[in-house]
Amino acid sequence: MSILKKLVLGAVIAIAAAGVAEAKEWKKVRIGTEGAYPPFNFFDADKQLQGFDIDVAKALCEKMAVECEFVAQDWDGIIPALLANKYDAIIASMSITDERRQQVDFTNKYYSSPIAFMVQKGKIADVTAAGLTGKAVGAQSSTVSANFVEDTYKGSNVKLYPTQEEANLDLASGRLDAIAVDKLVGYEWLTSTDDGKCCEFVGEDVMDEKYVGEGIGIAIRKDDSDLRDMFNKAIEDIRGDGTYEKINAKYFPFSIF
């Protein structure tokens, strides 16, 4: 068979396969997740997948009236395995980025992590740029929080740390007056460590898409646009009927949508 013929035959098969995929009725959706990112997706003591992502996924499947099967996959191979058809959707706290968009499609966000400010309890109430003028404001370098304070808090003494833990130490010791942080990361520190007891969130969360991005979405193969639409509709449904709020409240005392 000549190379040209092979190519033509290959193209025909590909088109035929694509036609089949489009006509496919979704009865069963296989969902890939990582299982190593608590409290979003993790294995409990009984080796069962648990977490916010899993609860949301189950609720979505119920709305879509499909059967769901979970597949655990290491983070590094999570997109390649989707493309290799090991599962049909990734629900694993994946941020929507342009880089990933080149390989996969995303649904609308199902949660997002805003930037929030942490201060020592009762010390500072105003964490606007004006309120923190002349104060020491910390953030982890090369994060969206760092970009945000560097661009917006020109009058503050901005200090950047290699890791979040080091910034936290300096807030606890009083070298810093405030920290800008991914709210979910900050929440973890404030609620589940001894050092974190010193401090609290204050002020408004920063939701600016320019900094926090488009949020966390479900990744789908590009040719499964019907599945993507089903997920989008289901996300709207669970947002509308209170299911989402219930799941949200189970994990966080504030809205993470």
Binding site: S141, S142, N147, K159, L160, Y161, P162, E166, D170
Partner: peptide, 19 residues
Amino acid sequence: ASVITVYDLMGTTRLAFSR
């Protein structure tokens, strides 16, 4: 020094690169 937030030449360079 940049590990304790004192950004010297190398530290500012890394920041510039990360953005």
